[in-house]
Simulated scan of single mutants.
Amino acid sequence: MFHLPITSLKAQFGDIDIYLFDQLLKGRIQKGMKLLDAGCGYGRNIQYLMQAEIKVYGVDASTEAIDRVQQLAKELAPTLPARNFVQADLEQLPFADEEFDVVLCSAVLHFARSEFHFRSMVQELWRVLKPGGMLFCRFSTTIGLEGKLQQLEGRFYRMSHGPVWFLADEALILDLEQQLGAERLEPLKTVLVEQERSMTTWVVRK
């Protein structure tokens, strides 16, 4: 029997988020689906998806990031048009309503400028998602670190590594779910990182 070397995992899957990989294993991202990575960065979460015949789109506020992702797509999935990857802000996505089967947003929402901005970004992600589609978000929260972070004004906190982040709590996430009419597909999963920050994975269906 032929066995793939374990070193091939990195080449195949890149630096995909382990919780996103879990959604692949559960069959929630399938060949032929139309998927948006909102805040795609350099494409770490879509390297494998590009090669798996997913119709991948990406937006990022950084033109450098979009240039890098367009080049990545050219190398890994030449049939994906460069126009699938565009510079844009998450609160004003350049896509039609209900366009995507899956919307990803990893390590972006805690950079919100206000609670209104945070909610606006989530509402835009929801707007472009098809009914029955999956929204996958991973972002820093206060969950598990209540009372242990340096709170500034409102929901802003000084993180131990220096920057100021907007941190949602569980109540805000629940409020958003009710407002959107979202169906939770997974329990909230929060990882504490050295008691310095917590990263919460939020997976819901429209």
Rank of each mutant, 00 (worst) to 15 (best):
H3N: 08
L4Q: 15
P5S: 13
T7E: 14
T7G: 09
T7K: 13
L9W: 13
A11W: 11
Q12R: 12
G14K: 02
I16E: 06
D17G: 03
I18P: 07
F21V: 08
D22N: 06
D22C: 07
L24W: 08
L25C: 01
L25E: 09
K26Y: 05
G27D: 04
I29G: 04
K34I: 06
L35C: 04
L35P: 02
L36Y: 06
A38H: 00
G39K: 06
G43P: 01
R44Y: 00
Q47K: 13
L49T: 00
L49Q: 03
L49G: 06
M50R: 04
M50C: 13
E53R: 01
E53Q: 12
I54V: 15
Y57R: 06
G58W: 06
V59Q: 01
V59M: 00
A61Y: 10
S62H: 08
S62M: 07
A65K: 11
A65S: 14
A65E: 09
I66L: 08
I66W: 03
R68F: 10
R68V: 11
V69K: 00
Q71Y: 03
K74R: 15
L80C: 02
P81S: 13
A82I: 01
R83P: 03
R83T: 15
N84T: 05
V86K: 09
A88F: 01
L90F: 04
E91M: 08
Q92A: 15
L93Y: 06
L93I: 05
P94V: 10
F95C: 02
A96H: 11
A96K: 14
A96W: 09
D97Q: 11
E98C: 06
E99L: 06
V103L: 06
L104G: 05
A107G: 00
H110N: 07
S114I: 07
F116G: 09
F118W: 13
R119V: 14
S120V: 05
S120G: 12
E124R: 13
W126P: 08
W126H: 13
R127D: 14
P131R: 04
P131D: 04
G132P: 03
M134C: 01
L135K: 09
C137L: 12
F139L: 12
F139P: 02
F139W: 07
S140M: 11
S140H: 07
I143R: 07
I143P: 05
G144N: 07
L145I: 10
K148A: 15
K148P: 02
L149T: 00
Q151H: 11
Q151I: 09
R155Y: 11
F156H: 14
M159S: 08
P163G: 02
V164E: 15
W165K: 15
L167T: 01
A168M: 07
A168P: 05
E170Y: 03
A171I: 10
D175M: 11
D175C: 12
D175H: 13
E177R: 13
Q179M: 12
L180Y: 10
G181Y: 12
A182G: 08
R184F: 04
R184M: 09
E186Q: 14
P187K: 11
P187I: 12
K189W: 11
T190G: 01
V191C: 00
V191H: 14
V193W: 10
V193Q: 10
Q195M: 13
E196D: 14
T200D: 09
W202D: 07
V203N: 00
V203W: 06
R205W: 02
R205Q: 15
